[in-house]
Amino acid sequence: MLMLAARRLIGVIVTLFLVSIMVFAIMELPPGDYAERYAFRKFSGTGVQVTESDIESIRIDFGLDQPFYDRYLNWIGGIVFEFDFGEAFAYETSVNNVIGDRAFLTLALLFVTLIATYLLAIPIAIYAAVRRHSIADYSLTVVSYLGLALPNFMLALILLYIGVTMFDLDIGGLFSEEYEDAPWSLGKVWDLLSHLIVPALVLAWSATALQLQTVRSTMLDELNKLSVMAARARGLPEWKLLLKYPARLAINPVVSTMGFDVNRIFSELPIVALVLGLPELGQLLIQSYLDLDMYVAGAILLMLTGFIVLMNFVSDILLALLDPRVRARMG
């Protein structure tokens, strides 16, 4: 088991390394270079004339005259050893400052979303599978189709529309006005949680739809297994039997796709955040892409992906704990 964890951990590091190269390549993709954008941003409208030599000196300041791998090493070295993600020129401060609280809010949103997804998907899907061909089962199928077809951000827009027109309610944002800039307190946490519910449900929408289908079909497979028949032939009460045998195994695919769920949620996060006006990383990511503020964008992309890799690792370990066959295979 420890061996397995160690081996997986090495895999995590290798993946993170490859991901960081890809992220850095994306940061370098936009036309023109950082110095030009920096100069343009800083001095446009100020009346200061920017010459080619000014840009050149900025370039040297930021080390942009060095080759790709040197720049990459500088960047990744700063992150790994000093936890420094570079400069955010659009905000004229360090990336760390810009990101600040938002990373925490993003994780809070992610976990509330994941919990909502599993709390909804697992019991409903198990029930639908056991009561196959019931109304509950058919409506589950319809919902899971819709969940894949109706993108989360459209659902967010619809909810906003319903909120505004029918209840005169603005469901956007993560804090009420009085807590917006207040220091952290119990009241603020409570306020945050109550504001997290709608965004979390919106984000959980398609992940839930997918998990409903997965759990339901695994459960149907498991219900037909001979081991279930054998347990029934031992005289086990039905509900105990369902929980101990098929339901227990129907959880496995959920655990094994946890990283995938996080990936999906992070993928949809920016646009939902934009629509619902959530001050977290995804929305900042869009803004920094539009500003071509690539150090911010790179930092966020790396954080999101890093977290997904981490969740993949956690899900591998959990799966091995849950399933002796996986343990045996991975040794």
């Binding site: 001979l226 081991s227 054998a230 032939a233 031992r234 227990r248 002796p324």
Partner: peptide, 20 residues
Amino acid sequence: IRGGEIAMIFQEPMASFSPV
């Protein structure tokens, strides 16, 4: 009756057990 008075064994011994 099941298990207590009438017990059953099946064709596929592998599938008759839950693997977990």
